[in-house]
Design a protein around this nucleic acid. Structure first.
Lengths: 166, 166
DNA sequence: CGATTGGTTCGCAAATCACCGAACCAATCG
DNA sequence: CGATTGGTTCGGTGATTTGCGAACCAATCG
């Protein structure tokens, strides 16, 4: 019981650090995201509860919530006759999309590199280098395929889950 | 000819931005890395030439070179009877390793999350959530396999290339 | 109407970062 | 030996980031 609380604390802390560095977001935004993933999965968390749980100011919570919304890392829903917004983390499939975007950036770069290299081959060593870049590009494309496949699978699971819970 | 120079410039600029954000390194470090990938692939670049080409101070170049060395994004070799160090970007397989590390961090997180969730199931919706996380974990493991496979393939190509060029 | 609630916006202050110049060190050269 | 070369270390500074409080706004309540 007490142990579970400790586990929860560590989970939030670690998630926070992880999100801050991989998504390049401020620490508080990362902590909000972590909290929404861990505690907000059922019914979402309100603005107020985030202010309390993270003991941060209203302004900081507001700014960082809007940042996360714009990044589509979170979303919110409302209840009729209730002025509050209930925030939730985006489904896991969104997280996969993020990695996919990183791959796309890498692919774009590799393509540019390839185009440049093709025009500047002057010695056998550079030819090897070219082959290397081509192999790297191949790998990225393989990864991309796997991603597209998995994201599709995932979306189905998530829709299914949603239907079961309504 | 002139066009090629323009392409080179754009390539360096874009690579710089990409590396700075995906590796979380200072702009200058990112530009050094970009330059080493594009110009340094043959015979490496010296400290001096980096200072000139990037028109940065010796101290900044020194600091950022050491950062990149520590991160294993670059390496250097020396030539007998020459005090200079020749810096090169690490082979592409190193870049794959970086993505693998990110996956590992994500896996670690998901495992923690899973362990916590298993202890806190109280309603059917949470059960769905658990299934979701498990599916996500599966995906990560699939990706990891693909990585291990490709990195191995890559290492072979690289060793091969090296032998051909000696 | 005024009071309350839920949330935003706007400076501002503290902390951190990125880069610089100058002084410095260690190895080699003449 | 002193001069030069290749590179490091240190203190500082301007720019950026992160979070805060206070004032504010818009919607609802009594």
């Amino acid at each position: 019981m007490d142990n579970l609380q400790k586990e929860r604390g560590e989970l939030i802390e670690f998630s926070g650090i992880h999100f801050a560095s991989t998504y390049n977001i401020p620490p508080l935004a990362a902590r909000i995201l972590a909290l929404l993933i861990i505690d907000g999965c059922k019914s979402g968390l309100t603005f107020e509860s985030l202010v309390e749980k993270l003991s941060a100011s209203k302004s900081s919570i507001s700014t960082n919530l809007n940042l996360l919304l714009k990044m589509e890392k979170i979303n919110y829903f409302t209840i009729a006759g209730d002025r509050k917004k209930y925030f939730k983390a985006s489904p896991l499939s969104e997280r996969l999309l993020n990695y996919k975007k990183m791959l796309e950036a890498e692919k774009f770069l590799v393509n540019k590199m390839l185009h440049y290299r093709e025009q500047t081959i002057t010695c056998p060593q550079e030819k090897c280098n070219l082959e290397n870049v081509k192999a790297y590009k191949n790998h990225i494309e393989e990864m991309e395929e796997l991603f597209v496949k998995t994201i599709a699978e995932f979306k189905i699971i998530e829709i299914d889950n949603n239907n079961n819970n309504q």
